[in-house]
Design a protein around this nucleic acid. Structure first.
Lengths: 343, 343
DNA sequence: TTGAAAGCGCTAACAA
DNA sequence: TTGTTAGCGCTTTCAA
């Protein structure tokens, strides 16, 4: 059974189609690409040949010729991190709607892996790359920026490396959460953060500080702990906080997994949320709504950010002028039980 | 700043390297590909030229020549479905370790999208595709099987289409859960299933039936409801079940989202889990462990399945003999609070 | 051990 | 409106 194969046993090529239709390969190419000026008669004959042979144009050969692969690379730390599936889907959907394929790369946020992937993608002649780095990826970004490949930085912003980016206003988002905590009566609000090298972590801390200042509350070093964006880090830092015997009436956690770690730790010590301490998180991962107590958190338009990154990249491809652009989304506060602000 | 570019303003090619090193392009190619029989002296000179030019071999040109793209396609329904991130990661990791790139495709389980992607991947000359279809993807699988592209079916098995596959023994897994329910005293165990066209759904139902038979319990049609693999479906079917006023003391849900839907519905009607009714799910998604009550469920080695699919595919590539193989994993029972079997 | 040259499948001048 | 042909960047046969 070799329906789709031409006489020589291999997949049909444009030559086979041309022969079958009795025309030149140029004519076939024109018809396939919808170029103007081909007679309906030939178009018809070629179409029939295409169908008969089950011909599928070789995109690799085309890419070599036109120097466009119609693929983009997407580098993220880890698809298993609940933040990323929606982001990836946004990218994929928008890419597909423009007939681009996406090559997915998980770097675990490790610089060497990021660079390895960047080179791989470069070799594969991707038309652009969307990059979400790890905690220390300035040098990866430098490498990326040095290559003749359009790139956009997604959910990250580097001080050192200039690159078009789509981000969300984390200062604003954090402020939303902290303000909510203050308005509910919080006066001694702890901050339990993520990897401080990450711009998103730093910005959330900044938003926290801003709101305290706004309300004339003191910034108490004893209530501030940095870690990383994991459950364990949240749990441990909550533990540390309790060890200090520093009083606090609320916690702003830099993401939802931290928040859950914090709440579990508090629960283990008999401290109730939100009755004794109010806790807010960040990201609105799926789990946030199902967890008991359901998490008050800050939702980011993750899917839309993925879409926008592709839109921006495609725009960069179109305009040879490499002006740098930035798109900044606004997050929103989702109030649930963990702050007791939902009644 | 055009460090990486050759004189003509474009990216360096093998020609540029050859000229710079004063050798022929054949020699450069040999060195780059580690072919035997090149003198150390030339190797050294070529290496220097490569570094100086920041030369990156053009994988598209190479792919055209050698007819191997070193890419594989991965078609899944939806990366936002919590089942898939670990699967994708398994695929990606194994692919990367063999220097393959993976093109991610979300089909939403829609046949027309699946076929669209299959053709796209075919055009892109991927070396193989890993396919996880939707409820009605027999025709997509037929298309895929008709193409000269090695393929493996992941977590799916078609009666009609023959294809190498990696699956998990769902009959066994379901039996694990239902047996657990029986041993805890369940006598009237309801089954709330997923899309019955999906082999996994059908197998889980089969496992349910087997255990009832094993214990001499009747198969009561009134306790069996089919739907799809969503929270809403679980909620609605639980509602329907209650409407029937048919007594039941346990529920086996065909996946975790259904189980949660069921539990929420029962809770809304004042029925406690596990005190009044025991509920078991399937999949052990991340949420299962965090949900209150934590879900008793069946865990599948999802990451390993992804890895195995790539291993199998690569093996298929190696051996031109297209023998069909199957790898069947065994799931395990994870006992938690929702069945009250964890004390 | 090295180089010259053909050719992978396609597009796009250019010519007719 | 159609065909001929050069060439994209690479690998590999063949000859030297």
């Amino acid at each position: 059974m070799k329906t789709a194969d031409s006489a020589n046993g291999n997949a049909a090529t444009i030559k086979d189609v041309a022969r079958q239709a009795g025309v030149s390969i140029a004519t076939v190419s024109r018809i396939l690409n919808g170029s103007a000026g081909v007679s309906p008669a030939l178009t018809e004959r070629v179409q029939q040949a295409v169908d008969a042979l089950g011909y599928q144009p070789n995109a690799v050969a085309r890419a070599l010729k036109v120097k466009e692969s119609h693929s983009i690379g997407l580098i993220i730390p880890d698809i298993e991190n609940p933040f990323f599936p929606a982001l990836v889907r946004g990218v994929e959907d928008m890419a597909r709607s423009h007939d681009y394929a996406v090559i997915l790369c998980n770097s675990d946020g490790v610089g060497s892996e990021e660079e390895r992937y960047i080179r791989l993608l470069h070799g594969k002649q991707v038309d652009g790359v969307i990059f979400t780095g790890g905690a220390n990826s300035d040098s990866s970004m430098e490498l990326l920026a040095s290559l003749p490949i359009p790139a956009v930085s997604l959910d990250r912003q580097s001080k050192r490396v200039h690159m078009s980016s789509v981000v969300v206003d984390n200062v604003y988002g954090a402020a939303l959460a902290v303000r909510h905590l203050v308005e509910l009566g919080g006066r001694r609000i702890a901050f339990i953060g993520g990897s401080p090298q990450l711009s998103v972590a730093a910005e959330r801390f900044k938003g926290y500080g801003q709101v305290l200042a706004e309300y004339g509350l003191p910034l108490d070093e004893g209530l501030i702990l940095h870690g990383d964006f994991t459950y364990d880090s949240g749990y441990q830092n909550a533990w540390l906080l309790l060890e200090k015997e520093r009083e606090f009436d609320a916690v702003f956690a830099a993401n939802d997994m931290i928040a859950i770690g914090v709440i579990e730790c508090l629960a283990a010590r008999g401290i109730r949320v939100p009755q004794d301490v109010r806790v807010a998180g960040y990201d609105d991962i799926r789990l946030a709504g199902w967890y008991k107590p359901a998490l008050t958190t800050v939702r980011q338009p993750v899917y839309e950010m993925g879409q926008e990154a592709v839109r921006m990249l495609l725009h960069l491809l179109g305009s040879s002028a490499q002006e740098m652009v930035e798109k900044r989304f606004r997050p929103e506060l989702i109030v649930r039980q963990s702050t007791g602000g939902d009644e």
